[in-house]
Measured scan of single mutants.
Amino acid sequence: DTINITLPDGKTLTLTVTPEFTVKELAEEIARRLGLSPEDIKDTHNGKTLDPSLTLAEYGITPGSTITLEIK
């Protein structure tokens, strides 16, 4: 299953994830792909900052969802 990550420059990154991924694991994968530190990444969905300890499923993030990435 894939989700879309909207980057600060407007580009989109597509990642393969499972509903059990935590937001922290997602940030780590994004950081790895972009050459950043996971601590520099802030993920938001529907205007809410995502708690790193919760899973994508707990936020109702499903395949095809879009998450907005902010760099701290």
Score class of each variant (00 low, 15 high):
G64F: 03
I3N: 00
L56S: 00
E70A: 09
T68A: 14
N4Q: 08
F21P: 00
T12A: 06
D40C: 10
K11Y: 12
R32P: 00
T49E: 14
I41M: 06
T6W: 11
I61W: 11
K42D: 10
T22D: 01
T18M: 05
K72C: 13
T22I: 02
S37Y: 13
L13G: 01
L50C: 15
T44V: 13
L13S: 02
I67A: 02
T6Q: 14
S53Y: 07
T14S: 10
A31P: 00
K11R: 12
Y59I: 14
D43Y: 15
P38E: 06
T55C: 03
A27T: 14
L26N: 00
T22V: 01
L7W: 06
L50D: 04
T22Y: 02
P52W: 14
L36Y: 10
S53N: 14
I30S: 00
T49D: 13
I71H: 06
L7G: 03
G10V: 01
A31Y: 09
G10A: 02
K48M: 15
K24L: 10
T22G: 03
P52E: 11
I41R: 02
E58C: 06
L15F: 07
L15S: 00
D51T: 03
I71P: 05
K48A: 14
T16E: 10
I67L: 12
T16K: 14
N4G: 05
T62K: 09
L36F: 11
L26E: 00
I41C: 05
T2H: 10
H45M: 14
S65F: 06
P38D: 05
L54N: 05
L69N: 01
H45N: 10
K11C: 10
L34W: 06
T2I: 10
I30C: 04
F21N: 05
K24S: 07
I30F: 03
L7P: 01
L50Q: 03
S65D: 11
D9F: 07
E70W: 06
T49N: 09
A31I: 05
T44I: 13
L54D: 03
G47S: 03
I71Y: 12
I67K: 00
I71V: 09
P52V: 13
G47Q: 04
L34G: 03
L36S: 07
Y59H: 09
D43R: 07
D9H: 07
L69F: 06
